[in-house]
């Protein structure tokens, strides 16, 4: 009698397991996917999302605090060609870790995070934000 029960148990487990596996696979067909189609779709960024850094040259006073607090020393103060302010930060995005200390310390709030995340280039120098690029980070956006 126990042998019969064993066989019935085995058959039950086979059927139950098969149905459970099929149900699990079918369920995922109708769930909302956690991923997006990367180049054509973008996710909704939160307000304080830390993307690539940008500098507003109308607000910047050229004090250099951002370069001093940067843990990776990837911010360099250079003479600004347009003249006002006298010095402006240039940022090496290869070394930037997006910690946001420069944003916290900037007295006039001239340096801030954008929502630019598609930071790609064909050369290493493409990721170096020179003084022309650092005031207009949107042109970094991957097309």
């Amino acid at each position: 009698m126990s042998r019969v029960r064993e066989i019935f148990n085995a058959v039950y487990r086979i059927i139950y397991g098969s149905l459970l596996a099929t149900y699990a696979a079918t369920k995922y067909l109708f769930l909302r996917r956690p991923t997006i189609e990367y180049p054509t779709q973008t996710i909704q960024f939160t307000e304080r999302y830390r993307g690539a850094l940008e500098v507003d040259d109308n607000l910047c006073v050229g004090c250099g605090i951002c370069a001093k607090v940067c843990p990776n020393t990837c911010i360099f103060m250079v003479p600004y060609e347009k003249g006002n302010p006298a010095m402006i930060p240039e940022i090496d995005l290869q070394h930037c870790m997006y910690c946001g200390l420069c944003v916290d310390y900037c007295p006039p709030g001239a340096i801030y995070h954008t929502h630019v995340v598609k930071i790609v280039g064909f050369k290493r120098s493409d990721l170096y934000l020179s003084q022309e690029k650092v005031t207009n980070v949107q042109e970094l956006e991957y097309k």
Binding site: Y28, L29, R33, P34, E37
Partner: peptide
């Protein structure tokens, strides 16, 4: 398509 969807890929 279906195989990808059941693995939550695209």
């Amino acid at each position: 398509k279906v195989w990808a969807r059941s693995m939550q890929r695209m």
